[in-house]
Amino acid sequence: MPTTTIDGHEIHVDAEGFMTDPEEWTEVLGKSLAHQIGIELTDEHWRAIRFLRSDFHEQGETATLRRISVVGGIPTKQLFELFPQKPAKKLAYVAGLPKPHGCV
């Protein structure tokens, strides 16, 4: 499994660059990951990130946008504003989780 170093944090990543070990993630690292993809995190970003992390912990898989809006209570429109163009994948990346596998 390849590793990469982001802001001094060495992390394990898959072939696309997503983290493979959620335990390596910290909020400080999350901020660095967001910075790498051009996102400055606000409280609203953190709300989504924390939901995704806790839901992953409970479900064992990354929530889809549908689940984030229905279960996490964060409207779809807002997710597209916070993480433009590819919200599900960008959010998963910043939260240090695999990209979601569900279709909807």
Binding site: T4, L33, I37, K89, Y93
Partner: peptide, 12 residues
């Protein structure tokens, strides 16, 4: 520092 390996979201 080596360039960090990051998914290519920017290339939409």
């Amino acid at each position: 520092v080596e360039t960090p390996f990051v998914p290519s979201f920017g290339e939409v």
